[in-house]
Design a protein around this nucleic acid. Structure first.
Length: 649
RNA sequence: GCUGCUAUAGCUCAGUGGUAGAGCACUUCCUUGGUAAGGAAGAGGUCCUGGGUUCGAGUCCCAGUAGCAGCUCCA
């Protein structure tokens, strides 16, 4: 360390400046400020760089002490927990070879460690033992000691330990970078850090959660290693809350609710990734589509339809066979020509455009279709309704003159937001993706289109991010992510400019001077895939659909058998008004009926009919969301349901 | 596609190489009641499919199919 005892000046976040001898460690600084702080500290930020507490500081800098419950502090905590997990693993499998163990930003897991177990694999049954070992290591409170080694010594150390992946990592570390290790007791791991000062600082909020495969180097061409997922929180209580949240998410899983509420199924003999819509799920989807169609017709769109298959030539011209052949189903021979199932709707809409000569006076065209497409997805990526092989896009294509682009995109984005709000999503994350390295179309076109997208984003006055180089090869795009009731985000909506297809299909319209001019093409989907959106919608509402879209809006319950006739009569009156109301005239007890309809079947409203109600021609209403709504006439109850239906609540 | 795990009643799941089980749901009966489970009886099975080992396979082995967790991919 520095032999000169010069002083360094550290500026803390509150603006105060403290002087220390050069070489003072972050830990010592924290202790000098306060014992409580020193205890909570897990790392420091020095001029914006996160570092370990045990490192000496040898220059003046802005310094922030990271405590365990900040974002940066948690990363250090979780990184250290990963290190302890590796230590635990080596105790039960000394021959295991370590690859990497970073903290991760995932709602379910805090960190993982990728390990090659060779011919001594572990199973899920070993996870509790690993968690127990981690707790022991944490309890023994062994110091984390950081040391730097010259390259050849570092290499030798890892070769001695049989850590071939670590040796490979060392060989990849740039010459000017230092090679550091962290020791805790007898365990040593090549690691950049930062780590907490001792294992005890990790605390008792740790868990070992799951086991999975992961490619070495995250490359599908490489060998598959075993990934162990864990989590670490500042305290035990947070960990318990996390487990509780995982359970809550499980209860809302659309695959679970799909079975429980009899909405849809994907299993059976029809083939993986294909969906059967049962009557109730079909009804909800029907209501979604009905709203969608009406909104499009009101919003200046025309509705078009296209077939499920087309000649391979069309997909050759569009470029799909060149770019996405692996994801397209193989050809079908029809009268000696090859046909393909459609993976997208756009070429058909282009064909509609090309079916006659188009004038500048006709533009813009806004053509929308609920078009069912088929894509071959890897078997392992299929997931309920969220990732399937046959799905319906709420697709539309705009064909525009250049002077219409900006206004149309703004109109589009506003439409996206109103549609998402109609389905109960009110929080968004929007992202503008710009020109990637490989692209078609000239720079001027890209710039104009990107500006038009950005102007539309600005007009919404909502925040958005920019993904530089994240656009498709054929044009820039806006993606909208929605946030659900559990705070998870889902990408559904997209607005994409396309410079490729108009070119490939040689599209044109006639301008005022009689010249042929290329139209601008915009693809957009509001809900994305209906299957996927339905899945997200189910999870967002936990299966408890709002009145306007619920398959059954209300059930009338008879208290005793003598009310059966009246309850059927009342339900008939309400059904006659176009409301989806059923009667439960069975002789179950009222408590059981309420439990069944309101809680198990998640019907939004129930109404009880007993002696009093028969006498007065009323019903006593209870809402799933708002509880007891009191007694009202049958007509009033009908008005309430009708009002909720039109207001989409 | 890859790694690992799983497949028994409508659902959730027990099941030790030797006669197929439970809870909930369902049907019927009793109960006639007032806002989150009244009682009794009954019915319900291609133990995923196909091979193999064995006197004998739901159970062990192999393959396929489907699902789960993750990785890779996602126009």
């Amino acid at each position: 360390m520095s032999s000169t005892q010069s002083l360094i000046r550290l500026t803390l976040p509150d603006g105060s400046v403290r002087e220390y001898p050069s070489g003072t460690t972050g830990q010592q600084v924290a202790e000098s400020i306060g014992r409580g702080l020193a205890k909570a500290a897990v790392g420091i930020e020095l001029d914006g760089e996160v570092r370990s507490l045990q490192l000496p500081i040898d220059a003046s800098a802005d310094m922030k002490i990271l405590v365990r419950d900040t974002k940066e502090g948690l990363e250090v905590l979780r990184h250290s927990a990963a290190h302890v997990l590796a230590d635990a693993v080596k105790r039960i499998r000394p021959k295991a070879k370590l690859w990497k163990g970073p903290p991760v930003d995932d709602p379910r897991y805090g960190f993982y460690y990728d390990i090659d177990f060779g011919d001594e694999p572990i199973t899920a049954d070993d996870l509790p033992q690993l968690e127990e070992l981690m707790r022991e290591i944490i309890k023994s409170d062994v110091p984390f000691e950081r040391e730097e080694l010259p390259r050849d010594e570092a290499r030798k150390l890892m070769v001695e330990h049989g850590e071939e992946y670590k040796v490979a990592t060392i060989d990849k570390i740039a010459a000017e970078d230092t090679i550091s290790f962290f020791r805790s007791g007898s365990f040593v791991d090549l690691c950049r850090g930062p780590h907490v000062t001792s294992t005890g600082k990790i605390g008792d909020g740790v868990a070992v959660l799951a086991l999975a495969g992961a490619y070495f180097g995250d490359d599908a061409g490489n060998k598959m290693l075993t990934r162990i997922y864990g989590h670490a929180f500042p305290d035990k209580k947070s960990m318990e809350e996390h487990r509780h949240n995982l359970e809550e998410a499980q209860k809302r899983d659309h695959r679970r609710l799909g079975v429980d509420l009899d909405l849809f199924s994907t299993m059976g003999d029809l083939g993986a990734g294909l969906v059967l819509w049962h009557p109730k799920g079909g009804f909800v989807r029907h209501k979604m589509e009905e709203y969608w169609r009406n909104a499009h017709l009101a919003g200046g769109y025309d509705i078009v339809y296209s077939p499920h298959i087309a000649k391979a030539d069309l997909w050759q011209t569009s470029g799909h066979l060149d770019f996405y052949k692996d994801s397209m189903y193989s050809g079908i021979d029809i009268d000696g020509a090859e046909y393909r199932l459609k993976p997208m709707n756009c070429p058909f809409h282009v064909q509609i455009f090309k079916s006659k000569r188009r004038s500048y006076r006709e533009l813009p065209f806004r053509w929308a279709e609920l078009g069912t497409v088929y894509r071959y997805e890897n078997a392992g990526s299929l997931h309920g309704l969220l990732r399937v092989r046959g799905f319906t896009q709420d697709d539309a294509h705009l064909f525009l003159r250049e002077d219409q682009v900006e206004a149309e995109i703004e109109r589009c984005l506003k439409f996206v937001i109103s549609m998402l709000q109609a389905f109960g999503f009110h929080e968004y994350e929007m992202m503008l993706s710009t020109k990637p390295e490989k692209s078609v179309g000239d720079d001027a076109g890209w710039e104009k289109a990107t500006k038009a997208l950005e102007a539309a984003l600005k007009s919404t006055e909502l925040p958005y991010g920019i993904d530089e180089g994240g656009g498709a090869f054929y044009g820039p795009k806006i993606d909208v992510k929605i946030k659900d009731s559990l705070g998870r985000t889902w990408q559904c909506s997209t607005i994409q400019c396309d410079f490729n297809l108009p070119e490939r299909f040689d599209m044109s319209y006639i301008d005022p001077d009689g010249n042929r001019v290329r139209p601008v093409m915009v693809h957009r989907a509001l809900l994305g895939s209906l299957e996927r959106f339905f899945g997200v919608f189910v999870e967002h509402h936990g299966g408890a659909f709002p009145v306007w879209i619920a398959p059954t809006q209300a059930v009338l319950l008879s208290v005793g058998d003598r009310h059966a006739e009246t309850v059927r009569k009342f339900a008939g009156e309400l059904s006659g008004r176009g409301l989806r109301v059923e009667a439960d005239d069975t002789s179950d007890k009222i408590g059981q009926k309420i439990r069944h309809h309101l809680w198990t079947e998640k019907v939004p409203m129930i109404a009880v009919v007993g002696d009093k109600e028969v006498e007065a021609g009323t019903v006593t209403v209870r809402s799933r969301a708002d509880g007891d709504l009191g007694t009202m006439s049958v007509a009033e109850f009908g008005d309430l349901l009708a009002k909720m239906t039109t207001e989409r609540s």
